[in-house]
Amino acid sequence: ADLRLKFAGTLPVEHQGTKTMEQIAKTIEDADVGLKVTVFPANQLGSGEELFEDTIRGNIDFSMGFIYAHKDPAFEIASMPYLAGDWDEMSAVLRNPDSAYNQVMGEHLDAIGLHLLQNNPEGFANVLSTKEPKNWDTLDPKDMNIRVWSSNVVKDTMKELGFNTTTIAWADIFPALQSGIVDGAECCTKQATYTIFAKSGVGSYYIDYNAFMEISTFYASNKTWAKLNDEQRAVVEKAFAEASDSFFQWNRDNDAAFEQKLVESGYTVLTPSPEKAAAMRDAVRAKIWPQMADIVGQDVLDRIKADVE
């Protein structure tokens, strides 16, 4: 009988990421190697953290989600600020299977029972706000309180960039912004800002610091991986790689389109000049990267730094 596999994700049904999952499921089934894949999008099987734990357990076979650092602090490399500054660098760091980032990720995922398939940079996760921050393109104080998630790295980076920070859970961002508890949030790609906030009339500025990336990862359970034969593995690897390539291309192509949509819905998109962006990047790297050795380990940090520089 065919092996039935569960493929879980966290993105909404109409999101391109979910369409990519469905495309992968179809490619694998069409290859006719004895695999059937059911897609569960939109947090149906739980949040990213739950998918992570239940994929290790083998209750879920493939997942698409963020890699959380609960099991291994080394995964905080996903929140390393200014790892890549533009789409080309993003491609070099995350889409190249031989990059230090992917090697480190692959090794550490394997150690906890997961098989890395592909990393998908979906764009930069930037600051959106309801008013214009003061000194928005320098490191000077912004006189603005923004939401961050519970990560020391993210908090310290945003403070270095001149913001006051408040920890707010993802579920509370929308009401917090809507009612004005915070003036902004470090959270979202242009696409997410448009679909979640702009369409509902919340927020009016989007600032391209490009410090953090929105990365979703395709990974498989090692238990599932052990059950597959070589032919099936080849089909699966290929399906994920091809879909990830086209997903990346789609994200890259649509970044400008969503910027346009943001502007049409009344947003102002602020992009610092290359010199000012480089100044902010260098200052943050000099301050925050050395601190990260304590979290992710000096060896991991050195490998990634060597690769990026």
């Binding site: 739980g46 739950e50 734990e53 239940d54 357990r57 209750n59 859970a169 579920a171 509370d172």
Partner: peptide
């Protein structure tokens, strides 16, 4: 065929929210 050791941890994840 679910791995039942996932039952209680999933409850923990689900409830682990200040909201």
């Amino acid at each position: 065929t679910t791995d039942v050791t996932g039952f209680l941890p999933s409850g923990h994840w689900k409830m682990n929210s200040v909201v």
